[in-house]
């Protein structure tokens, strides 16, 4: 923004120099040089400049905010996933939101889950896999919508490794920060109801890690903490 101030001050400086040159050439003071009609010509010019700026501003696109229907869909997906996890109805997890699946062969009969972060509160475990020696880790993520902006594309997959029957799940804990500008022409102090309404659908999106293991495989540190 410093550039903006610099540019405007530079233009104002040029204006002052031009006026100073005119004053020097005509040998008249500004008070006698300036006529009232110049003020109104200047005002007219400024308003025309504003209209031109309005046209330019209108041509500027921008990131679209999601519609009510999309927001509702995201909320429903979130609720459905939370219900399925809470009730341990893992078959009801919507495959539409499966982002990645890893399968690892197990050499022994015990697997240690090493998981330490707070993005997903726990790893949900189910002993429902087919008999054998393979475990399957699935990562689900419903659409992430913040301030009606779909930021799902920025959601990263966890880093997963499996060595010596130890499953390591690691999320990049660097907090993702997004910065947007928005033009809201209506008067803020009279638009309190609209402001509060935008706060209600503030944050939508849930993430889940689901580990499916055979009956014969024992899990250590099931909570994943």
């Amino acid at each position: 923004m410093g550039d903006v101030v610099f540019t405007v001050l530079f233009l104002l400086g040029i204006l002052v120099v031009i006026v100073a040159i005119i004053m020097a050439v005509t040998r008249r003071r500004l008070v006698t040089l300036w006529r009232p009609k110049y003020t109104y010509i200047g005002l007219g010019f400024y308003i025309v400049l504003g209209v031109m700026a309005m046209i330019f501003v209108q041509q500027q696109g921008g990131t679209e905010q999601v519609s009510d229907a999309e927001l509702q869909q995201g909320l429903q997906a979130e609720m459905q996933m939370r219900d399925a996890l809470f009730n341990a109805s893992f078959s009801e997890l919507n495959p539409q939101y499966l982002k990645k699946q890893w399968t690892f062969p197990v050499s022994g009969d015990t697997v240690t889950v090493n998981y330490t972060n707070q993005i997903v509160d726990r790893v949900y475990i189910n002993h429902d896999a087919e008999e054998g020696n393979a475990i399957t880790l699935s990562y689900y993520a419903t659409p992430t919508i913040l301030y009606r902006l779909n930021v799902s594309k920025f959601v990263e997959l966890p880093t997963v490794s499996f060595t010596d029957d130890t499953l390591q799940v690691y999320f990049d804990m660097n907090h993702h920060r997004f910065q947007y500008n928005k033009m809201q022409p209506v008067l803020g102090f009279l638009e309190a109801s609209a402001f509060y309404n935008t706060q209600i659908d503030d944050s939508v999106g849930t993430y889940a890690l689901y580990l499916n293991v055979p009956q014969n495989v024992h899990i250590i540190n099931e909570g994943g903490y």
């Binding site: 923004m1 903006v4 501003v57 209108q58 905010q65």
Partner: peptide
């Protein structure tokens, strides 16, 4: 009228000089 002009000129300058992405909105003042 000049307040509206000042506002639009300021927004236009912000769009030109600011790298931040803008959220699409109705740019016309009601």
């Amino acid at each position: 009228l000049t307040a509206v002009s000042s506002f639009y000129i300021a927004v236009w300058l912000a769009q030109q000089f600011h790298d931040t992405e803008w959220i699409a909105s109705d740019y016309l003042l009601p």
